[in-house]
Design a binder for these strands. Sequence first.
DNA 1: GTCTATAGGGGGATAGAC
DNA 2: GTCTATCCCCCTATAGAC
Lengths: 190, 190
Amino acid sequence: MVRSKNTRRAILDLGESLLQDQGFNGFSYAHIASQLGVKNAAIHYHFPAKEALGSAIIQRYRDRFDLWINNSRVKDLPPQEKLDWFFSIYTTTRADNGKVCLAGSLENEFNSLPESLRKQTKALTEELLAWLQVTLSEGKAAGSFHFAGDPADKAALILSSLQGALQLARAMGTKKFLAVVEQNKQELLV
Amino acid sequence: MVRSKNTRRAILDLGESLLQDQGFNGFSYAHIASQLGVKNAAIHYHFPAKEALGSAIIQRYRDRFDLWINNSRVKDLPPQEKLDWFFSIYTTTRADNGKVCLAGSLENEFNSLPESLRKQTKALTEELLAWLQVTLSEGKAAGSFHFAGDPADKAALILSSLQGALQLARAMGTKKFLAVVEQNKQELLV
DNA sequence: GTCTATAGGGGGATAGAC
DNA sequence: GTCTATCCCCCTATAGAC
């Protein structure tokens, strides 16, 4: 049982990593198995189909984000530091072997995903946007953020730019990614 | 010979469409062949390997962009209308069955692409960024654009957001994409 | 230029032994 | 829980006829 839990967790960890590295269609049970030192069939014991594995990966990601934003260490921060924390997630993702945003990776393959993964992807994106929007509203009300228009639209712009910048950085390097983050920060101050 | 040119062109058209729809690893020679009403091997006659097909698709895309921006109908426009034209490319892409930016699609699969396609992807992205940067500089100098910081960084932010927004729209719908475009436009006016 | 036929590999998934 | 063995499908690519 202990072994099972460890293996299951290791599969999820590796699957998440591969998903952000190669995309959903870019990794296989064989990849996970070989890197884990087990056989193909062992993965199928824990996740009968790839769709189930994918869904579990996204669900865990969503749960983790939910835990973070409701954790007092993030929840009680001033808006500006909240946003810095959010940006740092993406900076860490970039630093981790040039991975991309989980949501962005899935959206890119959206047209070939099974329905359950599309739903999970949409739910994740909605949660990211919702938190961003609220944080931006808070900051605007507190006078620490300055931007024109609807906080929902500004949230969509920031999230899009972060997802896009992680991808763009694969061709253009980390400097370009960091430039996008800094430009986003700077524009909120003016 | 006429037949050949038509087939070659039809392959490129369909390949480009599939690339923006399903990604490079998401379409096959069989897909192209069946939609074209020819056989697998016919595609290989025109493009011996998939890498050659991919490279030709990107090259043609780059050539087309180059033609456009040096066309007097775009070249002689005021900066604001130039940028509107650029945005309209992405809006058209979104309207075309929810396709995504060619560069964004390729960057997402960057880690599994052969070297020649990585180079092409990088070159395309550089050309998009370079044109955007110059156009933003022109507009700033002319007083029609207002933004803080380096035009190169602003160009990276805008391009990232457009690529990201096309992907985000797959999960969240066209409204969110249009919101990102409008937010970008609005922020340049303030 | 396009066809038929086929090689050779990788993918997801399952049955049954241990 | 993990293994071996295997099935079946799709993929890229090639050889040779027409």
